[in-house]
Design a protein around this nucleic acid. Structure first.
Lengths: 240, 240
DNA sequence: CTTGTGGGATTGTTCAACAATAGCCTAACC
DNA sequence: GGTTAGGCTATTGTTGAACAATCCCACAAG
């Protein structure tokens, strides 16, 4: 039935490479890592709001894992800054203050600015991803799907960083966005949060397409300043 | 004997703030965290060279901690990219390849460039730290203490990033340097690694003092390009 | 209103156990 | 000869229970 061929030699296509990429998607992850991912998702979607105490006993029972495994998962979440660990008190979903948000946006300026400066050396498919993200956001806005507008916005800015072609910068950005979601949760509506910035993203890609890098940088910096200020204002409102 | 005053109200000086800063220095760390720090140090100094397998039983016995605690420490080291975890095989001290080094230096360009651009808004004591690090490196070179030249060099570049005033960028840089030490271990001599760059650091601070930011950026980029190429060349030599 | 003082719950850490897996060795086989 | 199959051993993955240390809270005393 099956042909007796040597897979490693005959693959003119990149079958092996693609298989290897799938490896980590399936089973290949330990329990602790999967628990960390579940908690990451639940925190991001607001099911575990900032300030929530993550009881080892309760969570362990709910997820069906032992306390030791759970504690391993906590370690990675602490390193991701999604939870804080207070000695002999437990771990809590992180609560961001305006200083945190300000610093996060300072890092975004550094990361996204680096991507922007690398646009002239970036491969065309990365530029295309930029345009696709903006178009996706506009289409979602047309439909009134403001949650999708938000993810498209973040996809755009992640694609901006990806222009630099650095795996580590990409990971910084991914983690930064996960952290930023903690602040988004404090915002009243997804529409008010993302709609004002649709136009800015369009402006940036258009300026880039026209070769006006300095203009794009100015718009990007204004975007980040305004977004930061908007979130900080909402946080001060909410806290008082 | 003691005056009966309310500490919280009467502190014209910032006694409370300084006390709070001391809190984390004292005992306030769990076993796992301390174990992670010990392993970090041993890896940085080369006592646990890249590729070394970190046996849970052997390390646990040596450090006098249980396997569970050790595994918690491993998680943070994995997140710091100092070790790699292979499922059902164990954790190994990370081995960097030239691609890793290239990416690390790409991130350094982004981080240190960000600091450099922020020099005009940085407080004077941060500028002073810059000059102090360069002077310290030159003094150590005078004495032939090449290890100290190396730490002064890293102190200078960390101070460069600190100009941006961002805690997160500072932490990125700290972790990046810890990772970079894995590559330094492959270099034959500390002198060959650091001596050529003493002059560049001096150039950078002098150009900055003169207000020539673009010139400083050029020298910095050349520094990073050359250092990266030097290390990659040594790695290719060593690997073959 | 502040200062002890229990009691109860939770975390910090260890230990022992078992299942699952990787690595190695041997033997059989074409 | 080289390759494949099977089995053994050491190590990791994960769990459960145990105990000490610590924090929180309620309550009493000054």
């Amino acid at each position: 039935m099956t042909q007796d061929v040597d897979l490693a030699r005959t693959s003119g296509d990149d079958t092996l490479g693609r298989l290897a990429a799938d490896r980590d998607l399936l089973g290949r992850a330990g329990t602790a890592q999967r628990v960390a991912e579940v908690l990451r998702d639940r925190i991001a979607e607001g099911a575990l709001p900032p300030g929530t105490r993550l009881s080892e006993q309760a969570l362990g029972a709910a997820l069906g894992v032992s306390r030791n495994t759970l504690r391993e998962a906590f370690r990675t979440l602490v390193d991701n800054r999604l939870v804080v660990h207070e000695m002999n008190r437990g771990v809590f979903v992180r609560m961001l203050d305006p200083d945190d948000v300000t610093d996060i946006y300072a890092v975004r300026r550094a990361l996204e600015g680096t991507g922007l400066r690398a646009v002239c050396t970036a491969p065309p498919e990365r530029i295309a991803a930029l345009h696709a993200a903006v178009a996706g956001g506009e289409a979602a806005a047309e439909l009134g799907d403001w949650a999708e507008v938000g993810t498209a916005d973040l996809r755009f800015h992640r694609a901006l960083v990806a222009l630099a072609g650095s795996p580590r910068l990409d990971e910084y950005m991914t983690r930064l966005i996960a952290e930023l979601r903690l602040a988004f949760l404090a915002m009243p509506s997804a529409r008010a949060l993302h709609e004002p910035f649709l136009r800015r993203n369009r402006e940036i890609v258009d300026l880039l397409a026209g070769g006006d890098f300095d203009g794009a940088t100015v718009v990007l910096d204004r975007y980040l300043d305004d977004a930061c200020e908007m979130i900080c204002a909402a946080m001060r409102m909410d806290g008082a």
